[in-house]
Computed example of a mutant assay.
Amino acid sequence: MFYWLMRHVLAGPLLKGYFRPWTKGVEHVPAGGGAILASNHLAVIDSFVLPLVLERQVKFLGKSDYFTGRGMKGRLVAGFMRGVGTIPVDRAGGKASEAALNTGLRVLEQGGLFGIYPEGTRSPDGRLYRGKTGVARLALESGAPVIPVAMVDTDKAQQVGQVIPKPIPIGVVIGEPLDFSRYKGMENDRFVLRAVTDEIVYAILRLSDQEYVDIYAATAKARIAAEKAAGKRGSDDAEAAPQQPDDVQPGA
């Protein structure tokens, strides 16, 4: 009931008017039964925009921190997350992947739509990065079809670090379902998991027309952070170094 109110009365109409989302391929989402929506991930708002264009509820995973905030703000955030179908999961520690997998399997077994980002985190620069094999394991263990999804221009509406997105039109492109039943019983074969994951990511790539990078997005983020840190250290060192007069040449 709360989801219906959020979707059709409260947040839904407001967000639709704000973003004016356009769609392509919505007919590929089945009217019933469990299915995996595997999407690229450009901005935080991806998890809010995708459900806007579908009649069925989509459930995503969310950090448990979203549900434990204190005060009025904390309660509002928790209420909003529950209202849009976000499931709290503790993603810290070594059992994070197992918890995410089990949560997704429960949603699919109950005949729901489960949204997942194969890249594992937001793209740092708008490009599509190598997928993690959790989406493949989820598909093979559940037997559910995988529906590739491309979010378009959400990174332009909400750049990294931007809290309030800009009201520009954004798109959702949905591809035909992928069937991996031919790999039934092979969910522990790492080569099969990699092949399935790559097939899913390639399907997303065809829809999104992004540039592909064959490394993990988390690795790219770490490199960018390291380069920024090195640049800052270099700038600090330069400021701390003794300055020569402009008319003095090295070696003079």
Rank of each mutant, 00 (worst) to 15 (best):
L37T: 04
V192C: 10
D247N: 15
A252C: 01
G34N: 00
G74Y: 11
I164Y: 09
Y216L: 13
R194M: 07
V163M: 10
A38S: 10
T103I: 11
L61Q: 08
L105K: 10
E199M: 09
E98R: 10
A220K: 12
L101D: 10
P51M: 03
L108R: 01
A136L: 06
V172E: 01
A150W: 07
L108F: 02
R137F: 03
W4L: 11
Y117A: 13
G111E: 08
M6W: 07
R182C: 06
I147S: 11
I164F: 14
L76T: 06
A144R: 07
G74T: 12
P148V: 05
P118V: 04
T86K: 00
V84G: 05
G112Q: 14
A241L: 09
L76D: 01
V107I: 14
F48I: 13
H8F: 15
M72D: 00
K228W: 06
Y3E: 10
F2W: 15
D236I: 10
T23G: 01
S181M: 14
D209I: 00
N40C: 13
V49G: 04
I200G: 04
V53E: 01
V172L: 11
E239L: 14
A144N: 02
V26G: 04
V9R: 12
L108G: 04
L138P: 02
F191D: 14
Q210N: 05
A38I: 07
Y3D: 02
L42E: 13
Q57D: 02
N102W: 04
R130M: 08
E27H: 10
A252P: 03
P88R: 13
G17W: 04
M1K: 13
D236S: 03
D90P: 06
W22K: 02
N102M: 12
G171I: 09
N188Q: 15
L14G: 06
F191T: 09
R56Q: 05
I200W: 03
V173Y: 11
S47D: 13
S181L: 07
A217T: 07
N188K: 15
L10S: 07
F48V: 15
P148C: 03
V149R: 04
L193F: 05
S142A: 09
F180K: 04
D209K: 15
K132C: 09
G79P: 02
Q210W: 02
G134M: 11
D155T: 09
Q110R: 12
R70Q: 15
D237Y: 09
K63E: 12
L54V: 08
E199D: 14
S64V: 12
G34V: 08
R127S: 11
V9F: 15
D155F: 05
A218P: 00
I170E: 00
G120H: 01
G171F: 02
R194W: 01
S181A: 14
F48S: 12
Y202M: 09
V146E: 03
W22P: 00
V173S: 00
P242I: 08
L14I: 15
G83K: 13
V152R: 00
E98F: 05
D46L: 12
Q159M: 13
L113F: 03
R127H: 14
A240R: 14
A78I: 10
K16F: 06
G85M: 05
A241V: 07
A229R: 13
I170A: 04
V89Q: 08
A203K: 12
D65Y: 01
